[in-house]
Amino acid sequence: MTICVAYGPTPEGAAALDLAVRESRLRGVPLVALATERQERFDPDATPHDGSTLRAEIEVRLAALHADGDPVTEVHVVDDGGDPAEAILDLAAAQDTELLVVGVKRRSPVGKLLTGSTAQRIILESPTPVLVTHAAR
């Protein structure tokens, strides 16, 4: 079994990565960080990244969080040109995921109604449990 984290280049993505590392340690299972270059289309606050830049950012963040004895970590970045939520769910399914961690923005009820989100789709469509976190205020 594996812990997967859907990472985006945002404070919420960093919070999700931090929480996923802690869950991986707690459960003693490998961690896989999943990302898609297409996530930025849906997040105006995200910094544009190509696959290699995004992979490097995730690996730097993981290295900063690493402690002796941590389970193995992997990073997967894809750009299939399709839907980012679907890409993340497909990657998670391929990893035998026991828990999927995502970071979400705080939004008003009206904001939730008017705009969909990648995280919302992941939460609603994931066949495995999803742990949701926010960035620190």
Rank of each mutant, 00 (worst) to 15 (best):
G51L: 08
K105E: 14
I88M: 04
F42K: 02
T73N: 09
G69D: 09
V110K: 04
H76Q: 15
I58L: 08
P30M: 07
R61H: 10
L65E: 13
V101T: 01
R106Y: 06
S52Y: 12
V78W: 07
V72D: 15
I58K: 04
A87Y: 01
D70R: 09
K105A: 13
G111W: 06
V101H: 00
R107H: 02
R22N: 13
A63F: 02
I88V: 14
A16E: 12
P30V: 02
R107L: 06
G111S: 08
S108N: 11
A87R: 09
A67C: 13
D50Y: 02
L100M: 04
G51Y: 05
E23R: 14
I88A: 02
E59T: 08
I88N: 03
L91T: 01
P44Q: 05
V104Q: 11
R25Y: 10
P109K: 10
L100A: 04
V21K: 03
V29Q: 08
V78P: 04
L65M: 14
A94I: 03
R38V: 08
R61Y: 00
T36M: 07
L19P: 04
L26M: 05
G69Q: 09
P44I: 07
H76F: 04
A46R: 09
T73W: 14
T73M: 09
R107W: 00
G81W: 08
V110R: 07
E37T: 15
R61C: 03
K105I: 00
A63T: 13
L19Q: 13
V21N: 05
A92F: 04
P30S: 10
A85W: 02
G51T: 14
T47L: 13
D68A: 15
G111Y: 02
L65F: 09
D90Q: 13
L19T: 12
V104S: 12
R106M: 08
E37P: 05
D80M: 01
E74S: 13
I88S: 05
D18N: 06
D68Y: 10
H76M: 12
D68P: 13
D18G: 10
P48V: 00
G111Q: 11
D80R: 05
A64I: 03
V75G: 04
D83K: 09
Q39S: 10
E86I: 07
L31F: 09
V77K: 04
F42D: 10
L89T: 09
A63Q: 15
D50H: 06
L99V: 01
T73S: 14
L31P: 06
A87T: 15
G111E: 10
A63L: 09
V101W: 00
D45T: 14
R41A: 12
V72Q: 13
